[in-house]
Design a protein around this nucleic acid. Structure first.
Lengths: 126, 126
DNA sequence: CAACAGCATTGATTCGCCTGCATATCTGCA
DNA sequence: TGCAGATATGCAGGCGAATCAATGCTGTTG
């Protein structure tokens, strides 16, 4: 894969939504799918949940392996994917690497999936 | 896979969110991941988008193969997955099968991903 | 009734991903 | 400098998914 990280970070994940106006294009669909793919995994969902509920809203790898029941390399791998998708941010303090959520990124996804308010009108006008 | 269809339909996709309170459990993570996996595909995102923007908010398979550039069996396959995930509903009229969105289902996902309003306070109190 | 059109299903192929093991890298400390 | 603990990366096995061609099914039409 290329750089899914920038997919959500800045430019990408544009204001277009698959549930609003005209059909999205292939490139946009692939970008959005890339980010959703990062979310669509039980281990990664649990990671996000664990980090979010951690004392300071952050957690290091060593705190996450046990609750997940996965090996340290595997956990590190999933955290990498989530970070590259723009859903997590990493901060290294000393020997430990602390991860925390990026609320705006997750919010952006939620917005894209939120159908327009009462916008059920069909464009049958054509 | 078992019945991802019921995953969103009724009981499943409970009120728990991976981004709110305490960490979600493994079973919940797998259910949510199952639905997200249905979304995390470019072809399926484009299908949802095409159907949503269709004249009556509905479309049949024959209208979808060309814009997607995929074979009819493949399109049918994706529609099946989306329907089983509870994101689409199917209605057969004559020889045609019309698909349309299930807004509540997609809204439910969006709600789960929407962080609590201004709830950024950490529970470090513990 | 026969021929045809729209969809779904099956089988086969290819590709990607999740996982763990082994190993490399980095940081702090003696 | 050398050692130990915390993370990251490479590699490989195995499972699941995406796709298409071929086939079956159902309703429509002549």
């Amino acid at each position: 894969m290329e750089d899914v990280g920038t997919a959500l970070a800045e430019t990408s994940l544009p204001a277009i939504s698959p549930l609003h106006g005209e059909p999205i294009e292939r490139a946009d669909a692939e970008r959005l799918a890339g980010v959703l793919k990062a979310l669509a995994d039980p281990a990664r969902l649990r990671l996000l949940s664990l980090i979010q509920s951690a004392p300071e809203g952050e957690a290091c790898v060593c705190d996450l392996t046990a609750p997940l029941g996965l090996s340290q390399p595997t956990v590190s791998h999933h955290l990498r994917i989530l970070t590259e998708a723009g859903l997590l941010e990493r901060e290294k303090r000393g020997v430990w690497a602390y991860y925390r959520l990026v609320p705006s990124a997750i919010g952006a996804i939620a917005d894209l999936l939120t159908p327009p308010r009462k916008r059920a009108t069909k464009k049958a006008a054509r």
